[in-house]
């Protein structure tokens, strides 16, 4: 994996699909997702928008599909939702809380 791959990996593409990492334990509580990263011993709870995104990270939906779900659920401009989603996914990916579904599994 080269430096280019690293850059590409850090910016999720619209057609890509992501799934939650197995070492992350989570549940919905009071309408929000609560996450425990068992590797790092980190505990975090997400806000409404982030919880909605987290729910969509099942390895089935593409990034575009998640954006359209968000668009239906929240009253915000689509470009803003896309920007927030990509930034959030990048961060989750760097923290290894999610992983990209490989192309072989996609087909």
């Amino acid at each position: 994996m080269g430096f280019k791959d690293l850059l590409v990996r850090s910016v999720p593409k619209a057609s890509e699909r992501y799934e939650r990492a197995p070492h992350v334990k989570w549940r919905f509580l009071e309408g929000r997702a609560v996450l425990i990263d068992t590797n790092e011993g980190l505990f975090m709870h997400l806000n409404d928008v982030a919880s909605c995104i987290w729910q969509g990270l099942d390895g089935q939906k593409s990034v575009d599909q998640i954006i359209s779900d968000l668009d239906n659920a929240f009253d915000a401009p689509a470009h803003r939702l896309r920007k927030d989603l990509l930034r959030f996914l990048r961060r989750l990916s760097l923290m290894e809380l999610i992983r990209r579904v490989e192309s072989s599994r996609e087909s």
């Binding site: 334990k25 989570w26 549940r27 509580l29 009071e30 929000r32 609560v34 425990i36 011993g41 505990f43």
Partner: peptide, 24 residues
């Protein structure tokens, strides 16, 4: 982690976290 996630409310979860050495 499972026992922590089973707590009925976020506040109870947070108070457990504040009281125990969570990194263990």
């Amino acid at each position: 982690p499972e026992a922590l996630l089973e707590k009925p409310s976020l506040s109870e979860m947070m108070s457990t976290l504040q009281r125990t050495p969570f990194w263990r």
